[in-house]
Simulated assay, not measured.
Amino acid sequence: MALVKAGVVVLDCAEPEKLAVFYKELLDAEQTHESANRVEIRGADGIRLGFRRDVNATPPSWPRPENALQAHLDFVVEDLDEAERKIVGLGGRPLETKDASGPYEERGYADPAGHSFTLRLVPSTAPKQG
């Protein structure tokens, strides 16, 4: 029998209820837990996210000038433009990148509390042409 039953990625934020709504709408998720300082959701594909109240939380800076890596979330989507419209409509924002020209297979965003996440296109299963 496994000692650990499940894992949850938890984001610290000043207002967990509001941040949970952002991700709940983005991931078409259901709320599974709420207490005074924590909200948890589960997406249709099983992803579990938690949001913990930290009244002193400050948004992470990304990308950092020294280009240090930070933890962030990655989500796979079929349509980057459609997903971006939804993210912006929910209060998220695109993040600047060093080279923002041309089409990309992935794009970076920040949620309303400033946590970074990336959208990646579902890899094509069609055979290469030519």
Rank of each mutant, 00 (worst) to 15 (best):
M1S: 09
K5C: 04
G7V: 15
G7N: 13
G7A: 15
V8D: 10
V10F: 09
V10L: 11
L11G: 07
D12K: 08
C13E: 01
C13L: 07
A14H: 11
A14S: 14
E15A: 15
E15H: 15
P16M: 11
P16N: 13
E17I: 13
E17M: 12
K18N: 15
A20P: 12
A20G: 15
F22Q: 10
F22L: 11
K24E: 13
L26Q: 01
L26S: 04
L26I: 03
L27T: 00
E30H: 07
H33P: 00
H33W: 08
E34H: 06
S35K: 02
A36E: 10
N37W: 07
N37S: 13
N37C: 09
R38Q: 13
V39I: 15
V39R: 14
I41A: 14
I41C: 13
I41S: 13
I41K: 12
R42S: 14
R42L: 13
R42K: 15
R42C: 13
G43V: 06
G43N: 08
D45K: 06
D45E: 04
G46M: 06
I47L: 15
L49D: 08
L49N: 11
L49A: 11
G50H: 09
G50P: 09
F51D: 01
R52F: 05
R52P: 02
R53L: 10
D54M: 01
V55D: 13
V55T: 14
N56H: 06
A57P: 02
T58W: 00
P59N: 08
P59Q: 09
P60N: 11
P60C: 11
W62F: 15
W62D: 08
W62G: 10
W62A: 12
P63T: 04
R64N: 12
P65D: 10
E66N: 15
E66V: 14
N67W: 07
A68Y: 13
A68H: 14
L69H: 09
A71G: 15
H72K: 10
D74P: 03
F75G: 00
F75H: 07
E78T: 15
D79C: 11
D81Y: 09
E82C: 14
E82G: 14
A83L: 06
E84R: 11
R85G: 10
R85I: 05
I87T: 00
V88F: 06
G89T: 05
G91Y: 02
G91C: 08
G91L: 07
G92V: 00
G92Y: 06
G92L: 03
P94Y: 01
P94I: 03
T97H: 04
K98R: 14
D99H: 15
D99W: 12
D99L: 12
A100C: 04
S101E: 14
S101P: 06
S101C: 12
G102S: 14
E105D: 13
E105K: 14
Y109H: 03
A110F: 01
D111G: 03
P112V: 06
A113N: 02
G114Q: 02
H115Q: 07
H115C: 05
S116A: 15
F117R: 07
T118Q: 02
T118W: 02
L119V: 03
L119I: 03
R120E: 08
V122G: 06
S124G: 08
A126L: 10
A126N: 03
P127C: 01
P127K: 06
Q129M: 07
Q129R: 08
